[in-house]
Simulated assay, not measured.
Amino acid sequence: MKKIKIGIITISDRASNGVYEDLSGKEIERLMNIWLKSTWEACYRLIPDEQNKLEEILIDLADNESCCLIVTTGGTGPAKRDVTPEATIAVCEKMLPGFGEQMRQISLQYVPTAILSRQTAGIRGNTLIVNLPGKPKSIKECLEAVFPAIPYCIDLIDGPYLEINSAEMKVFRPK
């Protein structure tokens, strides 16, 4: 059986320059370790807010590393350097706007600025790409909201079957 690979990409000028530690990527990995019973491997990248670089990495992780899921953090706001959704849209064949809609709806319960967030998700081949916000607290809130649909989405795009720790996370798969 092929090893399950999950891409984790932190997009941050400051973290990539060593100004501060990447706590966001670590939070994604922590949550995956809690929720997944399947053995999996993280394909981790830390890069500056550069659209071309992000597109190259998304393509590499999807096409060459065969990640079934790529989760990005950062670069989803309205600032000039925030280009994560643009890179995601550029490399995906299908967009799944419901992911971003759900994450914004959840985030609005905590902060009114959630309407400024531009998270999205899409599919490239057999890979689901999900854009999360940059703060660890927001990552947990948003990923908890959309993760119940992720394993079934990966099933539908002929990715590997993700076994879930049902004591920690309830997912939906039709009978």
Rank of each mutant, 00 (worst) to 15 (best):
N17C: 10
P48Q: 05
E86M: 12
I28T: 03
V19A: 12
C68T: 09
E65D: 14
C67E: 03
L54I: 05
E41W: 08
K37I: 01
A90V: 07
D13F: 06
I47Q: 10
R45A: 13
Q51N: 10
A62I: 10
E41Y: 10
K94L: 11
K53Y: 09
T84A: 08
V83E: 08
L36A: 11
Q51V: 04
P48M: 09
T84D: 04
C43L: 07
A79W: 07
E21R: 12
L31G: 05
C92T: 14
G77V: 09
C92P: 05
E93K: 14
E65V: 13
S24Q: 00
S66P: 00
P78S: 10
D22W: 02
K26W: 01
K80H: 14
K94D: 11
N52C: 05
T88H: 04
S12P: 00
L54V: 05
V19M: 04
A62W: 10
A79H: 08
A90E: 05
L54W: 12
K26A: 14
M95V: 11
T39E: 15
A42M: 05
T73M: 08
N52V: 08
L31P: 02
S38G: 07
W35G: 00
E50Q: 14
V83M: 13
Q51G: 05
T84F: 10
L54A: 08
P85Y: 09
G74N: 08
A90H: 09
M95D: 02
T76E: 09
K80I: 13
K94W: 09
S38D: 08
S12Q: 02
R45F: 07
V19S: 03
L46W: 04
A62M: 03
S38C: 06
K94V: 07
S12R: 01
I28Q: 01
E86T: 03
A90G: 07
E50P: 03
T84M: 09
I59E: 12
V91F: 06
C92L: 04
E27D: 00
S66G: 01
T73L: 04
S12M: 01
M95A: 06
K80T: 12
G25Y: 01
R81I: 02
K94M: 10
R81E: 12
A79Q: 11
I70V: 15
Y44L: 08
T84Y: 05
C43G: 04
N33H: 14
S12D: 05
G77M: 06
D82W: 07
K94Y: 13
N64S: 13
C68S: 15
I47M: 15
L46R: 09
I28E: 00
R14G: 02
G74H: 01
I11G: 01
I59T: 15
C68D: 12
K53G: 03
I70S: 12
Y20I: 08
E21N: 09
E93H: 13
I11C: 12
T76W: 10
A42D: 02
E93N: 14
E55D: 08
T73Q: 03
L58T: 00
C43A: 12
